[in-house]
């Protein structure tokens, strides 16, 4: 068990390092010059040169990479060109907003997805199953930027029930949460449904019924525990990526002051250090969640625990 966890942690560290390297080079291979973007139109060539020197952009790429690694080891991920503050600080100032929205979407999608999935599997072809299938199809196929705009149009502009942008009251959460949850709900519904159907058909479920175990326990204790294993991967593993990925789109649409919108602004402003720390941070989140999944697996599945 300890060996298992140690191995996972090593793999996680290596993954983060690899992503950091790729991110560093990809951003520097781009054609746009960040210095040109930062300078005011009436700046002199001397100003440009000073700025280039200040950020170390005049040195060869490999030296820049060496410096980057040195700084990262000290916890310095570069300075935002735009705000002239440490990139990490800029990111963390905006992070709570994203986290709150992400958690709201997380709970909505997990509870909705699991309920729909389990109920659909328990009673296939029932009304709930049909509804679930329709919702899953919609959630899978409708892009969140379109859903977001339609929500704003319908609930915000036509009905005027909900605020269309910004953050403050609980009402502000409704539309972005809905918009962000639709795809994960679809995914979790489909996955938990098929996984539950398999489990309910299995011999160990029949055996539980033979023993006279009440149906509720058959479903939750015997079937769901087994069915949960593949679903957990999605819930935690994919979720980090999904949440942050869709945060970029959803936060932009609803003017949510989180890191998703920050990265869009930074990207347009060629503020590389901020975009860079965003990607590294997302990697860190996804890798950590996967690490948690691996450990949760071991907890649920004794076959892994006893390896």
């Amino acid at each position: 068990m300890q060996g298992y966890i140690a191995k996972r942690i090593l793999i996680a560290i290596f993954t983060i390092f690899a992503v950091m390297t790729v991110v560093f080079f990809v951003f520097r291979l781009g054609p746009a010059d960040p210095v040109a973007v930062m300078l005011s139109p009436n700046a002199t060539p001397q100003d440009a040169e000073n700025l280039t020197k200040k950020f170390g952009l005049d040195k060869p790429l490999i030296i820049q990479y060496g410096n980057f690694l040195k700084n990262v080891s000290k916890g310095d991920f570069g300075t935002s060109f735009r705000f002239n503050e440490p990139a990490l600080k800029v990111l963390f100032e905006r992070f709570p907003a994203t986290l709150k929205l992400g958690l709201a979407a997380f709970f909505v999608s997990v509870s909705m997805g699991l309920c729909l999935g389990i109920l659909s599997a328990v009673k296939p072809d029932s009304i709930i199953d049909r509804l679930g299938r329709l919702l899953a199809l919609a959630g899978m196929s409708l892009p969140s930027f379109w859903v977001g705009v339609m929500l704003i149009l319908f609930f915000g502009v036509t009905l005027r029930w909900l605020p269309i942008a910004g953050r403050g009251t609980a009402m502000h959460y409704v539309m972005p949460t809905l918009c962000m949850s639709l795809y994960p709900i679809a995914l979790i519904t489909r996955l938990s449904r098929s996984s539950m159907l398999d489990a309910l058909k299995s011999d160990y479920v029949t055996m539980a019924r033979i023993k006279g175990v009440p149906e509720f326990y058959v479903i939750m204790l015997h079937a769901f525990k087994n069915a949960a294993i593949p679903v957990i991967t999605v819930i935690f593993g994919l979720f980090g990526a999904l949440m942050v990925g869709s945060a970029v789109v959803v936060e932009y649409i609803f003017s949510w002051p989180g890191i998703g919108r920050l990265v869009m602004e930074s990207y347009f402003a060629r503020d590389y250090p901020v975009v860079q720390i965003f990607v590294i941070f997302v990697t860190f989140v996804v890798v950590s969640l996967n690490l948690i999944v691996d450990i949760v697996y071991a907890y649920i599945d004794p076959r892994i625990r006893y390896q």
């Binding site: 023993k211 204790l221 599945d301």
Partner: peptide, 27 residues
Amino acid sequence: EEEMRHLRGDRLSMILQDPMVAMNQLL
């Protein structure tokens, strides 16, 4: 169904053919 549940595993029981899949591996 409830009356049947009371009979199953009590007065009326059954053993399935493949013990490896008839037992819940997680319990």
